[in-house]
Nucleic acid binder design. Sequence first.
DNA 1: TTTTTTACCGACTAAGTGGTCGGTAAAAAT
DNA 2: ATTTTTACCGACCACTTAGTCGGTAAAAAA
Lengths: 205, 205
Amino acid sequence: MDKNLKRMATMHRMQVAGLELFYKNGYYNTSIDDILKSLSLSKGAFYYHFQSKEDFFVSIVQNLIVRKVYSMLIEPIEGKENPFPVIEKCFENALETAEHNDMDYGFILSNFISEFNRRNTVISNYLMDIYKVWEVNLITLLQKGKSDGYVDRHVDSEGVATYLISSYMGVRTLMVQGNCRNLRYKYMQQLRQYFNSLTQKEAVQ
Amino acid sequence: MDKNLKRMATMHRMQVAGLELFYKNGYYNTSIDDILKSLSLSKGAFYYHFQSKEDFFVSIVQNLIVRKVYSMLIEPIEGKENPFPVIEKCFENALETAEHNDMDYGFILSNFISEFNRRNTVISNYLMDIYKVWEVNLITLLQKGKSDGYVDRHVDSEGVATYLISSYMGVRTLMVQGNCRNLRYKYMQQLRQYFNSLTQKEAVQ
DNA sequence: TTTTTTACCGACTAAGTGGTCGGTAAAAAT
DNA sequence: ATTTTTACCGACCACTTAGTCGGTAAAAAA
């Protein structure tokens, strides 16, 4: 097991550097040499650890991108009570993180979904899997919110999840152009407006 | 002027073929040779008409992409009366067109905004210009809707425009994976829900 | 101690890449 | 009738790309 440590460490370094450059420049616009140069490693090292550029990217999706989306968008809402304030806080926090990160090139998941769409189905499927987990989590939270009386009974949980994910992906795409603070503010205000229309109205006593 | 006809015709053929391939495979993943091969033209012809790959793409943005977005998303709402049904019909129509087009690779504008973000500022700016025109048009329509009594006076037109564009971009990104019909249905339902919460409520008589 | 495995080096290959340039046939201008 | 311009051809160039392969020093196993 000890021998695996070095192996894992090098692979991890490559994956981190790889994700950074792929995210920044796009997959097709980033060469393996670019990544290796940034690490002062050689072609030999790369092809010792990974079979191909595609195999390398898949490992990045499964190790790094999954975790990023999980920790930012899935875990913060998992098993919580009242869906709307939880989602609101989660999105607000995610947008604020993006805003203060000058290395932000858009929502990593939607960027790569766009880039690989119909160009590489293997990678596309791995990415769509992450999206589906996110969607299921949102739906579950909303359903629970319905039975707990937070969400209006007539609300279509799947529809709301779709609408939430759509708007989040879209606003993250718009945020790349700058003016993030203003975009986030306007987005969050409309999100609250939307949520308000979905909230279970208490009987006036 | 007659001499220009041939020139324009060839340039236009190149632009149309170029847009098709750039949209399908991405800009960085499409070579000029790919485009030329599809037209049985030579390098000489290309560099006779265009200065560079970038110059070529800019001409595509200004000639073809602008017009696509205009005819699909801007003209249908320009100067109309009641904003909500107009926008609703416009989005529904745009999503249905995408759905029935098996050559759909996502919303052309957001795809390219993502691809060129921080990689090519010249092209990014041309793309953002189109986005801004769309945004301004939506805002104008909403403002007019307020003074005409269709839109609640407390509504933030800019915020609504941002939220609308975000959600549209996002849902178009999601639609690439298939299951478009269902996505469109769910999206439109939530859009109506959202619009409903922004509608001027008539005083109960 | 000897052998084998691990983790890496870097030269190399074949297939592209964007872009250049000398040439040319047909049309237009003179 | 001659000259010039237009619109295109395709060989070529310097460079980049993903991927291969023979080698090797150090560590681990025998």
